[in-house]
Design a protein around this nucleic acid. Structure first.
Ligand code: ZN
Ligand code: ZN
Ligand code: ZN
Ligand code: ZN
Lengths: 140, 140
DNA sequence: CTTGAAGCTATAGTGGCTGTAGGTTGTATC
DNA sequence: GATACAACCTACAGCCACTATAGCTTCAAG
């Protein structure tokens, strides 16, 4: 039978077979054609769409955002506003997370430094430092 | 009845009541005493331990790591090695995530810049840029 | 025509909670 | 002592984005 099998799509895109079926259940991929025996067969359009989904996932978009982006692709006229907003929101989110992680990193470096680890038999001050938010230099 | 109610622990630590019960189920908190009617009553030791858990969570440790840290606190002799390792592993993890997020940020900035958004009626190039990993400047 | 890889559905599990339903208990006020 | 009501209880379902398992069927090569 003609068309791409689910395994071929998986190999081409790096998305696991089970995940492709999951995307179908979530409505990100259309119900594909089936062979007489019930196996899925895809065309190139589905392959392209799955590649898009895979790449957007790698860039950290969640499935709802991806669904929105796909809907925008389908609209005959361009809707720059929405697409730009979704991408910019994602940038803001990433920057927030980076800022937060940097604060955490600084606190943890401080925590590790708090104990020299030399005094065997003495309690580890790392554990005290972990318990004590008072000693933290930033909110987190 | 004497002792702190679960609601009081919640207020003191900022951990939701349902979450405290969840921690108990996960074995992070001991089975507390109960009133005649079956409500939980805690002592100061449990309050301290919950504060420790809450703070370690804020610093991004997962519950398994926290369980390990608590076990270390209970050991009579200090085990610096394990505590330091857990904290250092966490730092490494955070640094990896920051590096990854920075790569994503750079790609997304490039994606957003790829379309000036002026050409209404023309398809949004953000969508093309999102589809195209070839154009990406780094792995992600 | 046989074999075995690849496909199918359905269901449960992951982490770290959150939310809901439907009932019981503790405490303050009268 | 009665009443009201917040706080508590258990048990279970749901969240996200998958992943894993079990038990079965189909496809394609030799
Ligand atoms: Zn130490
Ligand atoms: Zn802190
Ligand atoms: Zn645009
Ligand atoms: Zn890319």
């Amino acid at each position: 039978m003609q068309g791409h099998s689910i395994g071929l799509l998986s190999k081409r895109t790096g998305v696991k077979v089970t995940t492709i079926r999951y995307y179908e259940g979530r409505g990100l991929l259309p119900d594909p054609g089936r062979t007489g025996g019930g196996q899925r067969r895809y065309g190139d359009a589905e392959l392209d769409r799955l590649s898009f989904i895979a790449h957007a996932r790698q860039l950290g978009f969640d499935l709802d955002a991806i669904a929105e982006l796909i809907a925008l692709q389908e609209t005959p006229h361009a809707a720059h506003g929405d697409a730009h907003r979704i991408a910019k929101d994602r940038i803001i989110e990433i920057r927030d997370r980076i800022a937060r992680l940097r604060r955490l990193e600084a606190e943890l470096v401080r925590v590790v430094k708090s104990c020299d680890g030399q005094s065997d038999g003495q309690p580890c001050r790392v554990l005290n430092a972990l318990a004590d938010h008072q000693a933290c230099e930033s909110e987190h």
